[in-house]
Amino acid sequence: MSSSDIFFGETIGTAVLILLGGGVVAAVTLKRSKALNAGWLAITFGWGFAVLTGAYIAGGLSGAHLNPAVTVGLAIKGGAGGTQWSDVPLYFASQLLGAMIGAVLVWISYYGHFHAHLTAPEVIGAATGQEGLVDKSAAPAAGPVLGIFSTGPEIRHAVQNLATEIIATTVLVLAILTQGLTKGLAVSGTGALMTALVVVGLGLSLGGPTGYAINPVRDLGPRIVHALLPLPNKGGSDWGYAWIPVVGPLAGGAIAGGLYELAFA
């Protein structure tokens, strides 16, 4: 495939992934949304459908990695169906750009709801030292809408959080790499559906501790957008945690690639 195929496939596919995935979190979180408080099941299935849609859109152009961890796993796998290491930087850059575009589209789609949510008295009160005056120095590490853009732990323990992301991503990437071992699975398009179902399963099983980033750009791109957007009372972007959903998934992708070479190649 050409460089332009990789660029457009990964950029568009990842943008759709983040638009629909971040969109379902916004729908469940933001005030005056029809889906307010729909819960974790809605979020996990929403992310699964987001993966499915992005993969079907990008599959014919770039192979629909949509995730640097998947790209790393496929590069380690190599051979037929693998990825050339020379293409990896383009995949990474395209995925990051797409993730940022998708996050901006979520903001546009829910523009009024972001304003209604972030100007609510209880949200303002959480970040103010005096009534009606925002105390910037008191802004929390994770702002009140950061979860729409990126992930965060329920219990902040770096080793556990990192391990959770590594384990979940290893399962995801290994499931993707082994699809070719089942005749017709990837060719028929069923592979994208199976990947989406794996994402739903991971969210239900392993999403509780960290929100299951399992994708470095899914977390980093929107987190950058959160830091840049003119959102009132948005709080901090929690950069102290941001390395975990980048390093963990990359490590998981590498482990999955190694396991594939060891056990399945």
Rank of each mutant, 00 (worst) to 15 (best):
117 H>W: 14
143 G>D: 02
148 I>M: 01
120 A>G: 11
146 L>K: 12
138 A>S: 08
143 G>L: 14
132 G>D: 13
136 K>V: 04
138 A>W: 05
148 I>H: 01
134 V>W: 03
138 A>L: 07
127 A>D: 01
156 R>L: 01
124 I>C: 13
121 P>I: 00
129 G>T: 05
158 A>Q: 00
152 G>N: 12
141 A>N: 10
130 Q>P: 09
157 H>Y: 05
160 Q>L: 09
152 G>Y: 13
162 L>F: 03
125 G>R: 13
127 A>K: 10
155 I>L: 04
136 K>W: 06
145 V>G: 08
127 A>L: 15
122 E>C: 00
124 I>Q: 14
160 Q>V: 02
143 G>I: 11
161 N>W: 07
161 N>T: 12
119 T>K: 09
121 P>F: 10
125 G>K: 14
124 I>W: 12
123 V>C: 12
132 G>Y: 09
158 A>C: 00
122 E>H: 10
158 A>E: 09
141 A>F: 14
153 P>I: 12
148 I>A: 05
127 A>W: 09
135 D>T: 08
130 Q>K: 15
158 A>T: 05
136 K>R: 14
152 G>F: 15
122 E>T: 06
162 L>C: 03
134 V>C: 08
162 L>E: 03
118 L>E: 15
137 S>R: 11
140 P>H: 13
141 A>H: 11
135 D>L: 00
129 G>P: 09
156 R>W: 04
135 D>R: 04
123 V>I: 15
145 V>K: 09
152 G>E: 10
120 A>K: 06
157 H>W: 06
119 T>F: 01
121 P>Q: 13
148 I>S: 03
147 G>C: 00
140 P>R: 10
139 A>Q: 14
138 A>D: 04
157 H>T: 03
132 G>P: 06
127 A>I: 14
134 V>E: 13
151 T>A: 04
125 G>I: 05
139 A>V: 04
150 S>W: 12
154 E>W: 05
132 G>V: 11
148 I>Q: 08
153 P>E: 04
129 G>S: 07
134 V>Y: 00
130 Q>Y: 11
